[in-house]
Each structure stands twice: as structure tokens, then as C-alpha cells.
Design a protein around this nucleic acid. Structure first.
Lengths: 116, 116
DNA sequence: GCTCAATATGCCTCTTCGGTTATATAGCTG
DNA sequence: CAGCTATATAACCGAAGAGGCATATTGAGC
């Protein structure tokens, strides 16, 4: 019944520009032109990103004359939240248990930091 | 705070195999061999995925003889949760406000619920 | 020190993805 | 209907990513 696969949801959000768009639409629905301007991308490129977001079910379109107004659809993000749920226990409930786990497995003072 | 870029976190989780690995490690820390078997991938490919996860800060390694035992690190996932926070309001607090928004912009009848 | 076991890396290929330019479509306006 | 505006789609290209095979590395055991 799920109209969109979780895979396409992750794939959609993997791109930083698309996350920006999603963030923009969190504030309020916007027509394409506005998104183009805000993102600094070309119009075709933006349209493609919007298509990916549409296919992932993350946004909905409302046609208003020649304008297409995009709005966020919360459902897929809620699905993300659901995916996250089992992990949330790691830093809320049993932080100590995990702490022990990491502790006994850390010999490695490595920091993968500063990649990007 | 987060030593690793959000971008690499998303990129890491964008791959379904890597999400599988993360899910495996949620149950318990595992050596590479076990992950290889569970994922059905080749050992080199698995090692590469593990490197990506390491670079994203999602996993930590504990060397045990020749074995490398990988364990989940909750911090980056907590960061994901933080990212999600502003959106969470969409389906918890102001569902009605958003409902109106979607309503007036709906040309498509959708169903929530989406698993992989 | 040699060999085996476990894991990581290098190299190569193939596909996917994101961006660009050019063009098509649809609605408005005169 | 002509022309303009707003957006989508197509064709193309270069870059990145994921998988496979072969090989390097490292620790253990004899």
C-alpha cells in the first residue's frame, strides 16, 4: 500500500539541494520560480529535483494558473521518523548499555572528522 | 559537535546495503565476516561499505586479533533525529494547519505508511 | 619465518546522478 | 491566434558510486 519505497525516500533526501528544497517548503509552500531563486540552481535542474521529491512522495503540487506550487507532504518524513525509532533507544534509554558496548570496543581513538 | 558532515551521513545512509549493515549492528556488534554473510555481498564490497560508514561516524571498530568488530555509534543517528525535529511538528503539533495546506493543494490522494 | 585467516585497498567497469542547453507544453494576455 | 510566462522534458556529458577480482596487510599458530 505504501505508494513510495523507503529506498526512494532516502535517495531523495541524499542530495543536499533536495534537502534545501524540503527545508524551504517546511516554511511554506512555494512556486517553482521561488525555489529556483532560493537554491541558485537552474530552472531545469530544480524541476528535476522536484520530480525526484514528487516521486518519493515528499512533496505535492498544486497547479495555480501557470504556477506550480509545491508543498511538503509530512507522511514520508514521518516514515523516516519511524525508521529512526529503534535507534532512538540508543541515545535515550540505554545510553549506558551502549556506552559500555562502545567502551569495550574502543581501542581506536580515531576521529573520522573533517571530511568535508 | 558532530565531527562528520551531515552530508556524509546522508550519503552513507542512502545506500540500502549500508542501512542493512546499520540495522545489523543495532542488534549487536559484529565482525566483518558476519556482516558479509548476512548481506550476501562480497567481502571487499562489504569492507568498502564499512569504510563509508566509518567515515560518516556511524560505526566504530574494535580490533580483536585479526577480527575487526564493528559497532554502531549513536551520535550521527541522533544528529539525523535532530534534523528531523523541525519536521516532526508537521505530523504531531499542527497537523490541522498542514492538513489545510495540503487540502487546498491536493490533486492526489495519498496514504501514509511506508516501509521498505 | 612460513602459512593461514580476516580484512582492507587498488584497479577496472558499469551504472546512476546531477548539471547544462535546447525544446516542448500549458495557461495567460492582448 | 500570437506571443509571453512558467514549468516540464529530452538529449547529452562529466563525475561519482557500487560491484567484482586480484592483491596487500596484519595477526596467529606452527
Amino acid at each position: 500500500m505504501s505508494p513510495v519505497s523507503e529506498a526512494s525516500l532516502w535517495a531523495a533526501l541524499a542530495d543536499p539541494h533536495r534537502r534545501s528544497i524540503v527545508a524551504l517548503l517546511l516554511e511554506r509552500p512555494r512556486p517553482v520560480g521561488e525555489i529556483v531563486e532560493a537554491c541558485g540552481l537552474s530552472q531545469p535542474s530544480t524541476s528535476k529535483h522536484l520530480k525526484v521529491l514528487r516521486d518519493a512522495g515528499l512533496v505535492r503540487v498544486h497547479q495555480d494558473a501557470q504556477r506550480r506550487v509545491y508543498a511538503l507532504d509530512p507522511a514520508p518524513i514521518a516514515a523516516l521518523d519511524a525508521w529512526l525509532a529503534p535507534y532512538r533507544a540508543l541515545w535515550t534509554t540505554s545510553l549506558d548499555a551502549l556506552g559500555r558496548r562502545l567502551d569495550e570496543t574502543s581501542d581506536d581513538t580515531d576521529e573520522p572528522s573533517a571530511k568535508d
